[in-house]
Design a protein around this nucleic acid. Structure first.
Lengths: 168, 168
DNA sequence: CATATACAGGACCAAAATGGTACTGTTTAA
DNA sequence: TTAAACAGTACCATTTTGGTCCTGTATATG
């Protein structure tokens, strides 16, 4: 399975949490708490997203991070690119005629590019706003679910053993 | 960068080599030699591709592998799926309501699916035939290039140091 | 029928990538 | 001035990946 790494997954989770209180400045620690993503990773990710101008960092006391733009103007493609570099499927990529050690024999690059572009398009078509969780608090599926939310159990805190599965 | 792993990359290289002599039965050892992919990996990959009905295996003396279908009827999506499982971007995938440990909190799955489907579409749109190298032998770019081909230097044999780059 | 050839299916290991840790700056609000 | 919070960097542990090795089974051929 082609997969984004955990970090990128984390980033989307974090960002969609931040998009909730749009524009507000939040500390890394707060985000870690809210999203359940381990603090060191949160802080590493926030730095990267800051550099990529997806977030604005506010230094000093009372500082933190805030979204640089409205969630609907931040594409998933941008997030992925910020964290994993250019969207592409193999090492044989991009016009970059330096990367692939076998240009004369491996003439596939053009076609991989076609695939890559399609993928990039797909990621560009989805914005952070599209990825945001629905506001459960207003429409809890059950008492049990509401309890989970109130006790602050979040994504990364839920171990496979204690997994909550939606009834069929 | 989102990337297929080396194995899948190898597989496409191998398969496109096989598609050259279409239908012919070739041994794993021969393919390894031709494509420059290490034999153990070749053999592992061929087994997997056989199971997925992309290749037909012929056991016993004089055996080997042959393409199960014409190259143009084998999609890249199929190859990827055979080797890496279902095409999807995160663990939060597929209707499969067992995989994600945070269904009630992570309501993104639907949107990831949208992205995933687009990617699968992109991969399905490219066939093995599309990925095949053009027949250089008939149209060598230079004497040097022809030499390389004659001496059997292939993709994986070319080290970065001895990289052949096409003149601009 | 005997035998060499080739695939089938494991268990297993080493190297690389990933995710997580720790620590030492630097900036800034109060 | 001080404490809060980000910036940057080096480092380590774990997991994943790619590759090895070995034993078993099928089959063409002499």
């Amino acid at each position: 399975m082609i997969r984004l790494n955990k970090m990128t997954d984390y980033a989307v989770v974090m960002l969609s949490h931040m998009a909730g209180d749009h524009g507000k400045v939040v500390t890394a620690a707060r985000i870690a708490l809210d999203s359940g993503v381990p603090l060191p990773s949160v802080s590493k990710l926030l730095k990267q997203l800051g550099k990529a101008n997806i977030l604005i960092s506010h230094r000093g006391a009372g500082g933190g991070y805030s979204l640089g733009r409205a969630a609907k103007n931040i594409s998933v493609a941008e997030i992925v690119t910020a964290l994993e570099g250019p969207i592409a499927l193999t090492a044989c990529i991009d016009g970059a005629d330096t990367s692939c050690g076998s240009l004369p024999l491996c003439a596939m690059s053009g076609h991989w590019n076609q695939v890559n572009r399609a993928i990039e398009g797909a990621l560009q078509g989805v914005s952070l706003a599209d990825m945001m969780p629905r506001p459960f608090a207003f429409k809890p599926a059950s008492d049990e679910l509401r309890l989970e939310i109130k006790t602050g159990v979040q994504q990364a805190d839920i171990k496979p053993e204690t997994q909550i599965t939606r009834a069929p």
